[in-house]
Amino acid sequence: MQSNEIRTQVLSLLTRIAPDVDAGSIDPKRPLRDQFDFDSMDALHFAAALSEAFGLDIPERDYAQLASLEGAAQFVLAHLPAGGGAP
């Protein structure tokens, strides 16, 4: 999967779990917490959506890497079996 495709999919998952967020206004590099009152319930929903959509196991200690849109896309890229970066 191309990294652009992953970014698009990550964004669409985010707007699915937080439909009240304006997708167009998201700064991909800034922490979501600073932009949208993203709380621990949102973080859990986001991690669950990523885990389900990409078939990833995401341990709690890795949640911090999902803090921004770009961080989440990088995490997915690194951990996808075809991404080459999986540990």
Binding site: S40, M41, L44, A47, A48, S51, E52, D57, I58, E60
Partner: peptide, 17 residues
């Protein structure tokens, strides 16, 4: 909580609140 969540898929984990 950490021990409980470690054994579970993301969607079934609990939060502190």
């Amino acid at each position: 909580l950490a021990a409980h969540n470690a054994a579970l898929p993301v969607g079934e984990r609990l939060i502190e609140a």
